[in-house]
Design a binder for these strands. Structure first.
Length: 188
DNA sequence: CCTGGGATTTTCT
DNA sequence: GAAAATCCCAGGA
């Protein structure tokens, strides 16, 4: 196992798109009972600001989306299509709604399909109990990096976001990022 | 190869 | 009541 270091608070205080790219190759660590599940992030999407029609926050602050308006470094977890949870990382300053959706990860110490946001949450047993979890201090769910294993920018591809056809001119934004040639990426 | 629908629940209109 | 940041399976071409 690589030596992992938890991402510090200042990691989350960068531009959302920079964070979305930097998260590639980082690790999700989730405590399940006495065990830890570790997965390497291979695909992310950025949801940025109150005008991004693909973002839940574009309709204003509600009980569901208020986490996106909160401070950077929190987990925003919501239920989609009544069945699947999606795991997001809140970014930007308080009262500015932005987040990075983790779409896919590569399981390191377990074996399960994680090539999609719904499946990822099922594999990590992420549900709304973890909504609002502070990734900087939580023992149950946090992000880490292997400082010796940085991703080269040449491995990062960008593309249109998935499942946001209703988002008008925002649907074609190249706000999805993934690692080239990684078999766990949900879609090329 | 492709398209379409069902599962299931929260949220907004 | 309809749509949703999804996934899986069936059926047709």
């Amino acid at each position: 196992m690589p030596k992992l270091k938890r991402l510090p608070a200042k990691f989350y205080h960068q531009n959302t798109f920079k964070i979305a790219k930097e998260l590639l190759g980082k690790f999700i660590i989730c405590k399940i009972g006495k065990k830890f599940l570790i997965g390497k992030i291979v695909e992310t999407e950025a949801y940025y600001g109150p005008h991004d029609l693909a973002s839940h926050a574009s309709r204003g602050k509600t009980a569901r989306t208020k986490i996106m308006f909160d401070q950077a470094g929190l987990a925003y977890i919501y239920l989609i299509y009544g069945m699947y949870y999606c795991f997001n990382i809140v970014t930007e300053a308080k009262d500015f709604p932005a987040a990075v959706l983790i779409r896919a990860a590569e399981p390191l110490n377990f074996s399960k399909a994680t090539n999609g946001p719904g499946k990822l949450c099922r594999a990590f047993k992420i549900d709304k109990k973890l909504n609002g979890e502070n990734l900087i201090i939580s023992k149950n769910l946090y992000l880490a990096e292997n400082p010796k294993d940085r991703i080269k920018s040449s491995q990062i591809k960008n593309a249109k976001r998935i499942g946001v056809d209703y988002a008008g001119k925002y649907k074609n934004k190249l706000w999805r990022f993934y690692l080239e040639d990684n078999p766990f990426v949900s879609k090329k």
